[in-house]
Simulated scan of single mutants.
Amino acid sequence: MAQIAFGLLGGLVMTSEYGARTIVATLTSVPHRARVLGSKAAVLVGVALPVGVLVSLAGFLIGQASLSGAGAPHLALSDGAALRGIFGGGVYLALAGLFGLALGAVIRSTTATVTTLFGVMLIVQAFAPALPGAVGDWVSKFWPPIAGGRIITAFRDPELLSPWAGLAVMAGCVAALLAAAFIVFRERDA
């Protein structure tokens, strides 16, 4: 659910200005559109990354306390996999925010951005196992939110990407979408 919240925050950074038509005033005062979008992305990451790390840390501590209380195997905060999951989870959530920002810049509608975010981040993941053969295998391995989410797992499935490779797939997808957002934002009228 945190990935949706961060994605929605990123989307609203763009679409709220289009909805209220304040984007016209923003672009009048700062006509260099790449600076506007770049500044929005920088502020979003500046907020999302530390908050994402805190959310990941809280989730880890609560989850491990529950596992420990039930007598199940659990990780200590000092374990490498735990630290990777906490800091990688923060990076993943910041990437989800940038994904939402890029979608919002391309789509410009809050409703359509929210719908697309839900489809990309939740619906495809839910139906990936039901997809036929090679398509389902590919989606389960390379779909950006699924691949990026590997960063928070301690279990190593040889059929799936490693945690850092999965996060790289997510980052590459976000970078490509941000590049498209910069092009569309520069070329389109407010």
Rank of each mutant, 00 (worst) to 15 (best):
T22A: 05
L49H: 06
T15I: 15
T115F: 06
P144K: 05
L177G: 04
S39W: 13
G71S: 10
V184H: 09
G63E: 00
A70W: 03
F118G: 10
A25R: 15
T110Q: 06
R188Y: 08
D189L: 12
L178N: 08
G46H: 00
V51T: 06
H74S: 15
L37S: 06
L131P: 11
S140P: 08
A126P: 01
L101S: 06
A126T: 09
A181L: 12
G133Q: 12
Y18V: 14
L77G: 13
I62H: 10
W138A: 14
F155K: 05
T116K: 00
F182N: 06
T26F: 00
A81H: 01
S66R: 11
Q125E: 13
G85N: 04
L93Q: 03
V114T: 09
G148Y: 03
Y92D: 02
S29A: 14
G7L: 05
G71E: 10
I146M: 13
A25G: 12
S162A: 11
V47A: 15
S78R: 12
S109P: 05
S56A: 14
A2H: 03
G71Q: 10
V124P: 13
P158Q: 09
Q3L: 05
F185P: 03
L131H: 09
G104Q: 02
I4C: 07
T113N: 00
L83Y: 03
R108P: 08
P158E: 06
V91T: 02
R186T: 11
M14L: 15
F6T: 08
G7C: 11
D137A: 15
V24A: 15
M1N: 05
A94F: 07
F87C: 05
V53W: 01
G136E: 08
A130P: 11
L54S: 05
A126W: 07
A81G: 13
V13H: 13
G133P: 12
W138H: 07
D79H: 11
